[in-house]
Design a protein around this nucleic acid. Sequence first.
DNA 1: ACCTGAACACCGTTCAAGT
DNA 2: ACCTGAACACCGTTCAAGT
Lengths: 214, 214
Amino acid sequence: MAGQPKRKPEGAYHHPDLEQALVGAAIKTISEQGIEGLTLRDIGSQLGVSRTAIYRHFADKSALLARVALEGFRIFRRALRLAVDKARIAGADPIEEMGVAYIAFAQANQSHYQTMFSGECGSWHLHPELVSEAEGAFDVLLSTIKEEQAAARISAAHDPTKLADIIWAGVHGLATLGLVGQLFAYDGSSAQLQELGRLQGRILLAGLRSEGKF
Amino acid sequence: MAGQPKRKPEGAYHHPDLEQALVGAAIKTISEQGIEGLTLRDIGSQLGVSRTAIYRHFADKSALLARVALEGFRIFRRALRLAVDKARIAGADPIEEMGVAYIAFAQANQSHYQTMFSGECGSWHLHPELVSEAEGAFDVLLSTIKEEQAAARISAAHDPTKLADIIWAGVHGLATLGLVGQLFAYDGSSAQLQELGRLQGRILLAGLRSEGKF
DNA sequence: ACCTGAACACCGTTCAAGT
DNA sequence: ACCTGAACACCGTTCAAGT
C-alpha cells in the first residue's frame, strides 16, 4: 500500500458544492444510523473526500450539526406558518392544526428533528443563528396565541408566552416520546401519533376556553 | 515507568461494594459533566480501580447506564405514588400534584432523569427490567386517571391510556425543555418551572372536566 | 484556495496474565 | 473470583505538506 499514489486524480479535486453535500450526507446518515451513529470519517468517505476536508467548510462536527438543525428550524417554521394559514382559510382551529403539523414535521424530518433537540450540537447558545431561527418558529405559535386571545377565542387570563411554552412542551413531548417508542397507547403508526396530538390540542383548547378559574 | 510495580498493594484489591460504587460514581459524574461526558476510564480512576474492572459487574457501559436509569425509575415511581397519596389526603387534585412531582423529580435528580430519557443506554427494550419499572411508574398515573374517571371528576369519554400518554408527554416536554434551557418564558428557577407544570395541569384538567365535545 | 495523509489524544472493549 | 495492563479498533481534531 505504501508505493501507490493515494491522492485523487486531478479532475476530482474540487467538489461542486461540498458544503451542501456534507449537510445532505449528514442528514442521510442520521436517518439511517441515528445521530449518535454519525461520524465525520463516514460522511467523508461517502462523498469520496478526505475525512478532514470538512474542516474547510465547518469549524467542527458541532457546527455541521448546527447547520442541519438550522435547516430543520427553517422547514419547521414554514410548516407551522402554513398550518396556521390553512386553518384560517378552512375555519379550523389554528392552534390545533399547528400541533398536528408539529408532529407531522417531526415524523417526516426525523433527522432534522433529532439534530434540533438531541443536544448533540451542544447548547443552542453556541450557535446564535440557531437561537434566532428557533425563536422565529416559536413566534409563529406565540403570535397565533395572542391573536386567539385578542379575538376572545381562548382565555386572556394568562401570559401568552407561558401558554405557548405549555402547548409547545406538550406536543414536543408527544413527538419525542413517540419517535423513540416510549408512549404506551401507541403502536408506531404515524396517523395514531397525530391523532394523539389532535386530542391533546383539543383538551388544552377546551381548558383554555373554559370560564372556570384554574 | 517500566520497572516500578504498578499493581495495587494487597489490601486494596477487593473493593467493598464496587458495583454500587460504580453506580454512584456514574451519577456523580453525570451531574457534573452531563451524560455525554461520562467515560468508563474516568469513573474507574475516580474509584482507584482499573478501567476494565467494571466488566466484572456490568456487561458494558450501556448496562451501567441502564442500572442508573432503573434506580431513577424506582425513585420516580415512589415520588409519584407519594404525590397521589398526599393529594388524596389534602383534598388536592392528584393529577395536578403528580405533574408538579414529575418536574420536581427531574430537577432534583437530573443525572437519573438524563439517563432515563437521553437514549444513551440504548432502547429501553434492550433492558427488560427497565421496561417493567417504567411501566410501573406509568401505571401510577394510569390508575389515578381511571379512578378520577370512575368518580366522574374527569371525562370518561376517552381511553385512559391515551389520556395518560397526553399528560405524561406534556409534563415530560416541560421538564426536558426546561432542564436544557429551551423554554422561552422560563428564567431557570426551579419554582417557575414547577409553576408552569401546575398551570399546564390545570389547563388540561379544565379541558377534561368540560362537558363540551372536543 | 482547497485537499491530503500522518499524527495526536482520546474512546469502549477484549483478553491473556497475574494474585 | 477478582483485577490488571497491553492491545485493538475506533473516534474528532490539528497541522505541515502537496496541488
